[in-house]
């Protein structure tokens, strides 16, 4: 049960403001989710470079010297930026998988939040405003991003239980609603070799989509197939390297509002989140239809 915001920029001149716009939108939905907050930002990276975001409960201990150790381990240069409990490592894209494995060994307490060519993920427990401040989200630039405020229903209020969930390269998913068959789906996905960090229903949805994509579907097809395999109430917003998508369950009770102008496409669980966007008065504002996949790509 939560608040979702998403922003996909068409106008490049807005890119330096992406973080500022997205964090303001997210904070406006604090009432819908005061327990934790998270944000996925898709920013450009140099040709052939990739990013890995990790989180640690003991950042001082875990991040000290980690860039050098990681560099040595994977045999490639690594640049590290620490933001509070998170650190982003930039390295050659073909070394990401090796780096993920190395981190598990070097820093067992650290958790990989996401990796890919463009994605950075920051999430923590606490009020959305505090979370946005601690990661200085408002200073970030990017092409598109997704934010989430969480009111936990049945799973724990923890960093790992916060959204977005990323279960594949440059993929992330946030959710408003409550799935009713996630335990069975999780068991099936486990049997197929997927691993899970939490008991959260949303992580199952993310893993489901990643699994379908890994099996050869594109995101649109994966979302279509989620409509028959996932039961319950949901509005999903998903991010990929180049775009973002929206889908609502067939009953479509959980709220969703979209706005589009020449400069951006925006998503909010409520109109409140969109009310301060530039040119919103002239934007095309509508609600996504049930069982319908919406997708924008750069």
């Amino acid at each position: 049960m939560c608040g979702i915001v998403g922003l996909f920029l068409k106008d490049k001149s807005l890119e330096p403001q992406l973080g500022a716009m997205l964090s303001e939108m997210m904070v406006l939905l604090t009432d819908r989710g005061p327990d934790s907050a998270g944000i996925a930002i898709y920013g450009s990276s140099a040709e052939g470079q990739g990013k890995l975001t990790i989180q640690s409960p003991a950042p001082k201990r875990d991040f000290a010297g980690l860039d050098a150790e990681l560099s040595k381990k994977i045999g490639a240069p690594v640049a590290m930026t620490v933001k509070s409990t998170h650190a982003v490592f930039v390295m050659p894209a073909d070394k990401l998988e090796a780096a993920r494995e190395a981190i598990a060994e070097l820093r067992p307490a650290a958790r990989v939040m996401g990796m890919g060519e463009a994605i950075e993920i920051y999430k923590e427990v606490g009020l959305p405003e505090k979370v946005a401040e601690r990661f200085e989200v408002s200073k970030m630039s990017g092409t598109h991003g997704i934010g989430h405020t969480r009111m936990a229903t049945e799973s724990a209020v923890t960093t790992m239980g916060a959204h977005p969930f990323s279960t594949g390269p440059d993929q992330c998913l946030v959710h408003n609603g409550s799935l009713s068959n996630h335990n069975n789906v999780r068991r099936e996905l486990r049997r197929e070799g997927m691993t899970f960090e939490t008991e959260n229903d949303t992580e199952v949805a993310a893993a489901y989509l990643s699994h379908k994509i890994a099996g050869g579907m594109d995101l649109g097809q994966a979302l279509e197939s989620s409509l028959s395999d996932l039961d319950g109430f949901f509005t999903f917003v998903v991010g990929t390297k180049n775009g973002f998508g929206v889908v609502r369950d067939p009953i479509a009770c959980k709220p969703a509002v979209m706005a589009e102008t020449d400069r951006y496409v925006a998503f909010g669980s409520e109109y409140r989140a969109l009310a301060n966007l530039p040119g919103i008065e002239q934007a095309r504002v509508w609600e996504p239809e049930p069982s319908t996949v919406y997708f924008w790509e750069h």
């Binding site: 049960m1 009432d31 819908r32 989710g33 009111m151 109430f233 009770c253 709220p255 669980s269």
Partner: peptide, 14 residues
């Protein structure tokens, strides 16, 4: 079985 104009705790708050 459900309220006609809200679903879930986030809407209940409103």
């Amino acid at each position: 079985c459900r309220h006609p104009d809200w679903t879930g705790p986030d809407d209940l708050e409103i």
